[in-house]
Write a protein that binds this DNA or RNA. Structure first.
Lengths: 221, 221
DNA sequence: GGTGTAATGTGACTTAAGTCGTATCGCAAT
DNA sequence: ATTGCGATACGACTTAAGTCACATTACACC
């Protein structure tokens, strides 16, 4: 497979040998929007690198309630951890948010690279730094702040990130911040009543950044 | 500093050169029980490897409520992530549970090792696998299961791990599973009434593993 | 043995969060 | 238009979880 290395920022710092070793083992796979890449609890047979598109990594409980663990975009590695653990079991479910294609690296090839290509693990380690920080933030937020605060923070993050602020259903927001649709709707209405945000269909525009910041940090009014 | 490599399982697979490079940069620091190693939000100036003893990694909210992110024992690396991020800020607070001593590696030396000693990042990557899984579990549990279930799981984990099952205050349990003392006490009493556990002082003995397992998995009776 | 402090026990109360039922809206397909 | 469906809206209700105020016990230290 011919892969343009420039595209893959994540591998751009590798030596030519390392890049060749990795590149020769990758193959491509395409996913439709909504399609599942792998399931929590299933055997972990490969890891992935996102070529383009985006994945949602999530956990569910027996009632079907969902918690999104991460949203991963271009160049992000996926399911590495499941391959590093013994036994090799997928730690979560991954599904495509939009139409997405990934590079697949089988478990066997992953092992080979890990032992023979030291630069590979260095690359992965760096890619993980952010991810772990976000996980820590997620766990701490879920434990230490009420839903109202988590929602305010979520809206602020949206506003400050490059992600399109629209297209978020209340269900998706709920899965992201650890609650259910009804509560999100109720709180959005509340924010709107307080004139912190404005809503048009499912599009949220932020009116009062300072007000929301206050709602986002202090535990209560 | 002379360090016995055999002691450090985490580094036991390294080549002699790599070990020498790392070892020559470590120095030791001792902590009393309860002492703080670094504070959330402060500048991240070094990372650490636990020589003996144990650390508690935690986050707090403005009211002083605490969430334990991880408990780390011998050989575990600490604060790596904070050094990998930009800017270098401690992601959480670390304090000694018992009397503990750590190897200190300054940020500058960390950088050197990271670029010059590829085996170093490989070692770190492997050490992180478990840790990330636990973080995912924590976030998912906090979001998807009620306190009662999380407490049941906690007790079962204690029973099945090698950790001494005693010495846990209700406050510590609460900080671990994401709630407050009062609630832990209330639920422990409930478990005792249902004859799932028995309590003597702060020591918990598990009476009915199957019963607790049921309480730990299904959302409700 | 006392004394002080940390850890617990307990019940009454408040409130955030989740549940339920049903109504409405927007949009796509036919 | 009509139908159908997914996404919302919204009020009433239930309950898990957190708060508060004390009483009680265990234990370390003089």
């Amino acid at each position: 497979m011919k892969i343009d290395r420039k595209e893959n920022q994540i591998f751009s710092e590798l030596s030519d040998e390392a890049w060749l070793a990795i590149q020769s083992r990758l193959f491509s796979r395409d996913l439709d929007a909504g399609q599942t890449l792998f399931l929590e609890g299933g055997p972990a047979e490969s890891c992935y690198f996102i070529q383009h598109g985006a994945l949602r990594i999530l956990r569910t409980n027996p009632e079907g309630r969902v918690q999104v663990i991460a949203r991963l975009g271009m160049n992000q590695p996926v399911n590495i951890i499941s391959l590093l653990n013994q036994p090799r079991v997928n730690q979560a479910t991954a599904e495509a948010i939009t139409s997405t294609s990934v590079y697949v690296l089988t478990a066997a090839d992953f092992d080979t690279l890990l032992t023979n290509t030291p630069e590979f693990s260095q690359t992965l380690l760096k890619a993980f730094a952010n991810r772990i920080s976000q996980m820590v933030d997620l766990a701490a937020d879920l434990s230490l702040y009420p839903v109202r605060v988590r929602l305010a923070r979520f809206i602020l993050q949206l506003a400050e990130s490059d992600v399109e602020p629209s297209g978020w259903t209340q269900d998706e927001i709920a899965a992201q911040i650890g609650t259910i649709r009804d509560v999100v709707g109720r709180l959005l209405r509340e924010f709107e009543d307080q004139e912190l945000i404005q809503r048009e269909r499912s599009e949220i525009t932020l009116l009062d950044r300072k007000g929301l910041n206050k709602a986002a940090h202090l535990p209560e009014i």
